[in-house]
C-alpha cells in the first residue's frame, strides 16, 4: 500500500472533485459533504471518464411506481452510457458482482502524522491522502 498526499484539505472543499494520476493511473476524487471518495477514472464499460459523471442518488422501487430516493450524492453516473456506480465501493448498481470499477480509500489526515512521508507538508494543515 502506498499513501499519496494529493492536496491540502483547504484546497479540496466539499462539492468539488478532481483528477490525479497516481502510479500511471488516473483517479477521480470527490468530496461529498466532507467525505472523500476515489474511483479509477475509467469506466469498466467502454472507458468513459468517470470524473465527468454526475453525482446523484439511488432511485429504487420495491414495486412499480413505488419510488424511493436515497443516498443523495453517493452514486456516480458514467458521463457516457449512464451506468451507476457506488462511490464508496466502485460497484455498479445493475450488476455489482460482475461490473465494478476500482475504488480507492481517500481520507483527510493531519499534516503532523504525514511528516514521515517524502512530500513536504506543513504540520498545521490537514491533507487529502489516497491509498493505492
Amino acid at each position: 500500500m502506498t499513501r499519496h498526499v494529493v492536496a491540502p484539505v483547504s484546497e479540496f472543499p466539499p462539492g468539488t472533485r478532481r483528477c490525479v494520476v497516481l502510479e500511471g493511473r488516473r483517479i477521480a476524487l470527490f468530496n461529498v459533504g466532507g467525505r472523500y471518495f476515489g474511483l479509477l477514472d475509467r469506466c469498466p464499460h467502454q472507458g468513459g471518464p468517470l470524473s465527468e459523471g454526475v453525482l446523484t442518488g439511488l432511485v429504487e422501487a420495491g414495486a412499480p411506481g413505488d419510488y424511493s430516493f436515497s443516498r443523495p450524492g453517493e452514486i456516480l453516473r458514467c458521463p457516457w452510457h449512464g451506468w451507476e456506480f457506488d462511490l464508496a465501493t466502485g460497484k455498479s448498481r445493475f450488476d455489482p458482482r460482475r461490473h465494478r470499477t476500482r475504488a480507492f480509500r481517500v481520507s483527510a489526515e493531519p499534516g503532523e502524522e504525514l511528516r514521515a512521508e517524502t512530500v513536504p507538508v506543513r504540520v498545521e494543515e490537514d491533507y487529502v491522502v489516497v491509498e493505492t
Partner: peptide, 15 residues
C-alpha cells in the same frame, strides 16, 4: 439500455 436507464424503471431490479 437497461444498464444505462435502470433509474427510469427502478423496479426492474435484474437484467
Amino acid at each position: 439500455y437497461w444498464r444505462g436507464l435502470r433509474m427510469e424503471v427502478p423496479w426492474v431490479d435484474r437484467s
